[in-house]
Design a protein around this nucleic acid. Sequence first.
DNA 1: TGTACATCAGTGAACGCGCGTTCACTGATGTAC
DNA 2: TGTACATCAGTGAACGCGCGTTCACTGATGTAC
Lengths: 214, 214
Amino acid sequence: MAAGGTGSRERYRAQVRAEIKQHAWEQIATAGVPALSLNAIAKRVGMSGPALYWYFASRDDLITELIRDAYRSLADAVRAAFDAGADVAGLAHTIRDWALADPQRYFLIYGTPVPGYHAPADTTAISSEIMTVLIEACAALPPSKSATPFDTHLESHRDWAEGHSVPAAALHRAVSFWTRVHGVLSLELAGHFTGMGFDPALLFADEVNGLVKR
Amino acid sequence: MAAGGTGSRERYRAQVRAEIKQHAWEQIATAGVPALSLNAIAKRVGMSGPALYWYFASRDDLITELIRDAYRSLADAVRAAFDAGADVAGLAHTIRDWALADPQRYFLIYGTPVPGYHAPADTTAISSEIMTVLIEACAALPPSKSATPFDTHLESHRDWAEGHSVPAAALHRAVSFWTRVHGVLSLELAGHFTGMGFDPALLFADEVNGLVKR
DNA sequence: TGTACATCAGTGAACGCGCGTTCACTGATGTAC
DNA sequence: TGTACATCAGTGAACGCGCGTTCACTGATGTAC
């Protein structure tokens, strides 16, 4: 049984790792991150608890990787939509669909922070990948009518957007886009609109649209 | 040692309960809700673990009460500001201050939901107290220039605002106010703006202000 | 005012649980000669 | 092609931990007569 170029062991490893992660996601979707248990996952995968340590150094290690995957997934979705010609409204739609598909995955990134925890550096890099797309999309919008105080403020505080030679108003729109999308989504996904009877999708669309023409 | 009108035992009970809650909040602020431990609280208060059961039926019972207190605190703050003459911008400021004072308390209400958990009915009542104030404040705003799709949608989906005889546009503003405030605050408190260097307060003010004149 | 009694507030020991993690060990798999 | 060997992937037992919670029991506190 000759091994392939990448080695059959490596292929097997990748496969089992993927399977472990998948069960981890299911467990998170069911009971949230705090309830994620290595032993429970192992049982689902069909092996003993200690065997997981061949694939992940620790529980924290597994969770960190899940966070990274979640960021990656969102960044890829946003980038793909943009490359396919999506405008600001289209990007918003993409993000909303992504979040609705797995709310707990969304909250793993944008939910309640754990006081001591600091995200690894590469996730912040992925995060700015997303921001880059948003800025590019916002730069294509018709110019704003008037400058707000925050516009002015951004003129002298735009180091974080280094490399983007767009007006401060475009940066403002990108940030606003992000906070508005997040505002509607997190309240919606957390169930704070239940019992109110309106359609969150319309509110969402209006919030994004109001940002375009201002 | 004669007891007062309300009974010294009851007074003592209330005092110890308050002390337990206070230590619970400190623990939540330090390590988040999942790390909240009855034994650790008891040690801080200066008694054995089982003694807590004289004051709270269970850990869940304690947490539920903390959630209720958090809602109550926010509702009182908002109501007090409104009664003192605050407009929409003033209310936003009040909410922001409240959230910054104790981020984990904010997240206890508006953070990641636990999949199985359903908030008790009275907290949703307090929640609509808050919404009532927001609607009243928005109704005092100058009328909008044009109706959006969500405005129209609300005309026929406003049962949740029963008792408020205000234009649908005012309801829309109240909801938008809430999602925008939440959007900026939750990203800010979760640390997603760190490293970007701008002042979140200005972004926050702009988001609220943009809602007033539209 | 004194006494008897019910209630309240607390202790310490113990239970059972599930957790993450380590350890020694076994068998299978792939590789080098 | 066969053999020797290193590595990989897994098991099962065990460790120590802290958790929420229960139980029997003790002493203090307030109350009723």
